[in-house]
Design a protein around this nucleic acid. Structure first.
Lengths: 221, 221
DNA sequence: GTCTATAGTCGGATAGAC
DNA sequence: GTCTATCCGACTATAGAC
């Protein structure tokens, strides 16, 4: 079974993206070499300039790929939140529930083994945004953060664009992100090589705990 | 005033460390070049192999320098905690207070402008530990985490080496670390180029809030 | 102790065969 | 569309003048 003019074995473009997730994640953009990338993908080194115009073009394609996949997973919840915030008859409990739901989705995303590959790319971009960061920031990160800040503003009855709401939103989202950024340290402390299902569930429940307890007992400050 | 045989203008070793903080922080170990490092330090490129045996030797020296400075700042509180945990007549309120104090020290450390330079180095090492990570892990990170897990174990009346205590400790410390890791994103959301004093104080108070509310209302789970 | 010069390797992109 | 071969610049480390 081989279609006439589509894929002979598998699209080299796709394989380069896959290799990029691994290699850029491990070595960073500067540390990655086109030879590593081509080797991992099982294609020729000259294929990178050919298909993506160069190393940087491949990198941008990789980040866009990450944005699309992460977005497909968590943006549905985000959109539900945006809609709920516009109805104006959203109870505090419901808002807290939505926040927990958004964070749970995020933790699930971060918890799955695959995220090890692309997570490092995103954390690096968070530390030092390049042109590639705009791609994922506009498509995913900003939307999720605005939704969370919106919910927090609603719960604490403060403006969603206030510094307080923004910083609290980062604090909440950060709790989940940290298990991505400090993954190796945490695993070292736990004496494991990989998170178990129970670990993920425990992280989820701790974050839920912190959301519920913190937001319930805080005045808007 | 110039001592007979010590420093002519300023120790080139010191200047290389200083350049290393900046350059390794910006480009990572692989992305940094000896020419960048030497240029920033205002010394000759050959000075790096001469003084530190090579690029990697300089990198290790930089990480050791970070460990020492960060340790000088936060380990005093850590040691106070370790001592308090051994007395066995530590009240829950006092334990919570110590945890807040440890985190406040950490946030202050992370909040100061200088941390922008070395913070990225440490985050990178957390994501992908190299030999250099052992230096700062053993001297600082492990101690702080063990102290925090100890306090949390005490407060929640669970073993300090349990997965729950360890993960909760990471969750708490992570809340502060995220303002380092996601610094650029948060500043982008806030529309600033640098954290203000008020920002740092707000972060500190939010973390304190979360510690007090979460640990007070949680059963050990 | 600090410099210049250079050796030897490896980087990304390109030319051109097939 | 995929390969080999290669250009040329940049890399780290070293040799040796001063």
């Amino acid at each position: 079974m081989k279609s006439p003019s589509s894929k002979t074995k598998e699209d080299p473009r796709r394989r380069l993206i896959d290799a990029g997730l691994e290699i850029f994640g491990t070595h960073g953009f500067e540390g990655a070499t086109t030879r590593m990338l081509a080797g991992k993908a099982g294609v020729n080194q000259a294929a990178i300039p050919y298909y993506y115009g160069g190393k940087e073009g491949l990198y941008h394609a990789v980040v866009a790929y990450i944005a699309e996949n992460a977005g497909r997973f968590i943006l549905p919840v985000t959109e539900k939140i945006t809609a709920a915030l516009q109805t104006d008859d959203l109870s505090t409990d419901a808002a807290v529930g939505l926040l927990v739901k958004q964070l749970s989705a995020f933790i699930q995303l971060v918890g799955q083994g695959e995220s090890r590959r692309w997570g490092r790319i995103i954390i690096r971009e968070q530390m030092q945004p390049t042109k590639a960061f705009d791609i994922i920031y506009d498509r995913v990160i900003r939307r999720v953060h605005e939704a969370c800040a919106g919910l927090i503003g609603h719960i604490l009855q403060i403006p969603p664009a206030s510094d307080t709401a923004i910083i609290r939103a980062h604090s909440v989202v950060g709790q989940a992100m940290i298990f991505q950024a400090a993954r190796e340290t945490i695993l070292r402390r736990l004496g494991r090589r990989e998170f178990t299902f129970d670990d993920i569930e425990m992280i989820r429940s701790i974050v839920e705990d912190q959301i519920r307890n913190t937001l319930r007992h805080s005045s808007g400050k």
